[in-house]
Each structure stands twice: as structure tokens, then as C-alpha cells.
Amino acid sequence: MATVELTTENFDKVTGGDGIVLVDFWASWCGPCLRFAPVYDKQSEKHEDVVFGKVDTEAQVELAARYDIRSIPTLMALRDGVIVFSQPGALPESAVESLISQVRALDMDDVRKQLAEHASHEH
């Protein structure tokens, strides 16, 4: 499956559904981003059940600001509309593979419970 270009118009629709969505925040002037792109594309072909999105931080400044992206590339993973991972840095292919396995293995009921507990402690 090819990567999907994410914009402010389609981001919430693409990332808010069930299943796993990876998001690569990148820019054309960023060397590590350009080196990471083929790794990301290759993974998108191996994992057809995962949506691989890309956000061009130059074109989508609002999205980069919404998620406080300060360093690129940043890879974010969502499952069932919940952000479960976000980390800057170009990952090697084995790390992307490992991340996908870990996100697949999550107990989302447990994740939502922890999020609810965390939110209740903040008030």
C-alpha cells in the first residue's frame, strides 16, 4: 500500500478510525527525512493493514503545530484514533517493524483505561 498525503482537511478522518495509522512528519529540505522515506515506503508495502500517512510540515504548518512537532522526521503511531507513540528521529527498518508489532500487540482497552486515569489525575 502506498503512503497517504495527510493535510488538515483529511488528517482527523484518516487517523480517527479503527486500526493502525503511522504518520511521518517530514520536510523536503530535511536530509534524514529523505533518507527515511524509502524505509517508510518499503514498510507500507509489507503491512497492507496499516495506513502509512505523511505530513509535509512545510505545507501543513497547522498540523505540525497541533502535535508540537519540533524535530523531523517524527514518527507517530495511532491505534483506533489514540496516539500510542510519537518520537523524533529517522528509525531503521527493524525499529519500524518492531514498532508496528508493538502497536499491534497493545490492549487498547487497557490503553484507554490508563488515558482516562491520567486525565482524571490532571484536574
Rank of each mutant, 00 (worst) to 15 (best):
M1L: 08
M1T: 10
M1A: 10
A2Q: 11
A2Y: 06
E5T: 14
T7N: 06
F11N: 15
D12H: 14
K13R: 12
K13G: 00
K13L: 02
V14R: 03
V14L: 02
V14G: 03
G16A: 03
G16K: 09
G17Y: 05
G17M: 07
G17I: 08
G17K: 09
D18N: 13
D18I: 00
D18K: 13
I20E: 01
L22W: 01
V23K: 04
V23H: 04
D24W: 01
D24E: 12
F25M: 10
W26A: 15
W29F: 00
W29T: 01
W29A: 00
W29R: 03
C30R: 04
C30N: 02
G31F: 01
G31P: 00
C33F: 02
R35N: 06
F36G: 00
P38K: 07
Y40P: 09
Y40N: 09
Y40A: 07
Y40L: 03
D41I: 01
D41S: 10
K42N: 07
Q43P: 04
Q43G: 01
Q43Y: 01
Q43L: 14
S44H: 01
E45K: 11
E45N: 08
H47P: 05
H47F: 01
E48L: 07
E48A: 11
D49N: 13
V51F: 02
V51R: 03
V51S: 00
V51C: 00
G53L: 11
K54S: 08
V55K: 10
D56V: 14
E58F: 05
E58K: 12
E58Y: 07
A59M: 11
A59D: 11
E62S: 12
L63E: 09
A64W: 10
A65R: 13
A65Q: 15
A65L: 11
A65G: 12
R66A: 13
R66Y: 06
Y67C: 07
D68G: 10
I69D: 02
I72A: 02
I72T: 01
P73K: 06
P73A: 03
P73D: 02
T74P: 06
M76F: 03
A77I: 01
L78Q: 04
R79G: 04
R79K: 15
F85W: 11
S86L: 05
Q87Y: 09
P88E: 05
P88L: 02
G89K: 12
A90Q: 04
A90H: 04
A90P: 04
L91D: 06
L91R: 14
P92L: 03
P92K: 09
E93L: 07
E93V: 07
S94I: 13
A95P: 15
A95Q: 15
A95T: 15
V96W: 08
S98T: 15
L99K: 06
S101Q: 13
Q102I: 10
R104D: 06
R104C: 08
R104W: 03
R104P: 15
A105P: 13
A105D: 15
L106R: 11
L106P: 13
L106N: 12
D107N: 15
M108W: 07
M108S: 09
D109K: 11
D110R: 11
V111W: 05
V111T: 08
R112C: 03
K113V: 00
Q114S: 14
L115W: 01
L115Q: 14
L115K: 11
L115P: 04
A116I: 00
A116L: 04
H118I: 12
H118D: 12
A119H: 14
S120Q: 13
S120N: 08
H121S: 13
E122N: 11
E122G: 12
H123P: 14
H123M: 10
